[in-house]
């Protein structure tokens, strides 16, 4: 503004020279960045793009009995599931499972995440580590753990039976109930991590400000804390949703063959019936489902103003 008027021409020249210098180092930097990207991009192409392209191509082939694949270009693999009410039901069940697990997981993880995010304790790091420690055990092991806990003679049923609350054991496993319980627990660490990182705009000062303006604890929560933690909640929900509908181990092990979702269907088609084109088509459908939900998520976050 007024400074430029009094700025000496020499200084301006120096500035210009600096700019040029910046440009040339910028070019060099860009080249370095590109060079640094190569291993990652190459890895991604080999491990993701190529297999994905191969899978999409595979989905247009024709599967014959006993694992024979006819290389052709057909939409039958798509027409078949899309015109078959059974696959609509499987897809709908998959979607419903993802939503249920996502909601429940967010519900039980939210208090934990909120506590960890707001904690000023010197043990906060340790507490976060404890909260996500279950990730150190594989999902298979934890699923087996749930089978033991939820089984007919498991911890839950024998406790309820011992207390005289039930006569016949509750069916908590080999159905969607078991799968849901297992998945919620297994994905809690992810939800907690996603929420903690999504609570960026939350600060104790905002809650104090609301309090000083007359808001009760409940009003602080509903008017300030909850709206500000929505981006974190949404991210956690999306993550858990995506993990749920793509997971195969838990529905397989805790579902007892009665829980038919896209992932288990793809597994059966791939390893049991050896119909790879059909499995590939189902995988593409699952991917489209991912895409849809991510699009909705982005709409929502923009609305919330994340």
């Amino acid at each position: 503004m007024t400074v430029t008027q009094t700025e000496a021409p020499a200084a301006r020249r120096a500035g210009a020279a600096e700019g040029e210098l910046e440009k040339s180092t910028g070019r060099r930097n860009r080249r370095t960045y590109l060079a640094l990207l190569i291993p990652g991009v190459l890895g991604l192409v080999v491990s993701f793009v190529f297999p994905l392209a191969y899978m999409v191509r595979m989905s247009f082939n024709k599967g014959a009995p006993d694992g024979v694949i006819e290389e052709t270009f057909t939409l039958d693999t798509y027409i078949q599931p899309l015109t078959d009410p059974y696959y609509w039901r499987v897809t709908l069940d998959t979607f419903q499972m993802g939503v249920t697990v996502g909601l429940l997981c967010v519900l039980v993880s939210y208090p934990v995440a909120l506590f960890l995010a707001r904690s000023t304790s010197k043990y906060r790091g340790l507490l976060i580590a404890v909260a996500i420690a279950p990730l150190l055990t594989s999902a298979v092991v934890r699923t087996y753990g749930w089978m033991v806990i939820l089984g007919t003679n498991g911890l839950v049923n024998s406790t309820l039976d011992g207390m005289g609350l039930i006569d016949t054991p509750l069916k908590l496993t080999n159905n969607m109930t078991g799968v849901t319980i297992g998945l919620v627990e297994i994905f809690m660490p992810y939800a907690i991590l996603a929420m903690i990182s999504g609570f960026g705009r939350l600060s104790p000062q905002l809650e104090e400000a609301a309090g000083s303006l007359g808001a009760s604890k409940l009003q602080i929560f509903t008017r300030v804390t909850l709206p500000l933690s929505l981006p974190g909640i949404l991210t956690a929900f999306l993550l858990v949703f995506v993990l749920s509908i793509s997971t195969f181990i838990t529905p397989r092990l805790l579902g007892g063959g009665s829980v038919q979702v896209l992932a288990t269907e793809i597994y059966d088609q791939t390893t049991g019936l050896l119909n790879w084109p059909f499995a590939a088509a189902l995988s593409v459908i699952l991917l489209v489902l991912f895409g849809l939900i991510i699009a909705v998520y982005q709409r929502l976050t923009k609305k919330i103003g994340g």
């Binding site: 080999v46 006819e70 290389e71």
Partner: peptide
């Protein structure tokens, strides 16, 4: 054309080769 999973093996081999390269 009828193929078997031999083609897939070929593709897998290509992937493996690329993995070794990287």
């Amino acid at each position: 054309r009828v193929i078997t999973k031999g083609k897939i093996a070929l593709a897998a081999a290509a992937t493996a080769a690329a993995l070794v390269l990287t």
